[in-house]
Nucleic acid binder design. Sequence first.
DNA 1: AACGTGGTCAACCGCGATCCC
DNA 2: CGGGATCGCGGTTGACCACGT
Length: 341
Amino acid sequence: MGQHTCCNQQKVKRGLWSPEEDEKLITYITTHGYGCWSEVPDKAGPLFLLLLNTTLLTFMQRICLQRSGKSCRLRWINYLRPDIRRGRFSPDEEKLIINLHAAVGNRWAHIASRLPGRTDNEIKNSWNSWIKKKLKNPSQLHSTNTTSSNKNPHHHHHQQQQIQSRFTYNTTKQQHEIFNSQDFGAKPQVQQESLCYSPNSFVFGTTCSLETIAYGGHATSRAISTSSLFQDTLSLTSEFWQTHEQQKHEAQTSGMNSNYLPPLIESIEPPMEIPSVCRTNNILDVSGQMGRNQLNEWEVETQQYCPSYLIWDQDTSPFIGDDLLAPTTSDTEELLSSFPS
DNA sequence: AACGTGGTCAACCGCGATCCC
DNA sequence: CGGGATCGCGGTTGACCACGT
């Protein structure tokens, strides 16, 4: 494994950054831009400084950072970027994070890419503190959770385990690979207009099933209105991207490209095409061409390949709330149209 | 006031992916 | 094509702070 050249330096400072260091890094980035983090400490090396005249020395001292390039990158991305949004997550953002996490698991960078101005580290930290709280007190997961009334401690413990297992459902590498494969283990009928997933642009909430399943679980899905969650996601993501695109356009048209700082995740692929998916009797019906038997077969295969996904029907689902309504196709189209193409 | 405990968050570490020579 | 260099991500750590006892 390659070690950073900058990490071989004798004096690489660690720990918290001082305001002076922050200033130096900001100065460097705004002057030179970013892209090659290893150059930051290299250009500020002590031997290099000795060769400079006084004027240059003064300048270089200002940008001299005895930090690894890695540390510089982290500090910039997670803290110093001017487009960072700090402070607590809004309820809308929380919903969006929950929704995204349900779909992609602990892929924080992926989630952060949908929340411009928020960093993966911030989201990760928030989630970890949030989930700890929720796991300790499942009844707080959602106020409308009717199952939390059982006071049997064993049941309570079991419920915690159940929730925990559901929260960690999507964390194995194998599952991620499967989830990323886009094949989805779909049968030919489904494959033609298959449910689609792109590593950089998953499709959330295309159906009632996917939405709630992705979030997965008695304690959680019941209280979350899929339709409202979808709408929240829709509007929030749309708003963020409109703002981002507007900033980008303004920067480009005004020739301020050197000052414009793109979102943390630069290249986000456009979402894949969504099939027309309709919902009949809580059964996922792809383009209305999938019969019950075909669906059952597809269900079995899909669950083999994608164990984090469940499919239910009206009778067997224990956690379908009355307020769970599939987002309409127009919802999906509206969401997708909000992403940059 | 002193101590313990738990939560938050910035930063580090290790590793896989990607780039480049 | 192989291997080193670099980047980026997710998991983990540890410092700091607030709060309770």
